[in-house]
Amino acid sequence: MFKKFRKKSPWILHYNAGSCNGCDIEILACLSPKYDLERFGVINTGNPKQSDIFLVTGPVTMRSRERLVELYTQMPEPKVVIAVGSCTCTGGVFRDMYNVEDGIDRYIPVDVYIPGCAASPELIIDGVVKALDILEKKTKEREKPFRLFKDFTLKDGIVSRRESALRIGDDDAKD
């Protein structure tokens, strides 16, 4: 049930990791009647445990990085991370300032990058729509069965525990 309708109604969690508010008010403008992001079934929520899409703005500052990672880990799988704005993608003008960590992909994996200073509402909507596709793909990927121990026996029948342990997390083990 949930899996089927996840794409139709993703919930968004928004976190400001030290941006200038420009992108944040554009996200707010997206939710307003003119652009109306809610027509995609998107709801802005404050609870990380119920959300599917993580919208992050701002280059990560020293004090907000722990909260960023904490919010990311609290979100249930599958989840999609969108970096909104130039400074979120690379650091932007704030790159190399002493209290800034130059973009969020140093801390959490990012699926969609939205450039622009400030990112315009059209771009944000495009990014969210793209994120919906990624979310669906991720959902499907989770449904696929995969063998934990693919051909773990060697030719002479001796099991190498070290090798099989390595294979568990491998990408090609999933197909």
Binding site: T61, M97, Y98, V100
Partner: peptide, 10 residues
């Protein structure tokens, strides 16, 4: 202090 980036020094 969550948003402190250090603009004055830059």
């Amino acid at each position: 202090g969550f948003v402190h980036r250090g603009v004055e020094r830059a």
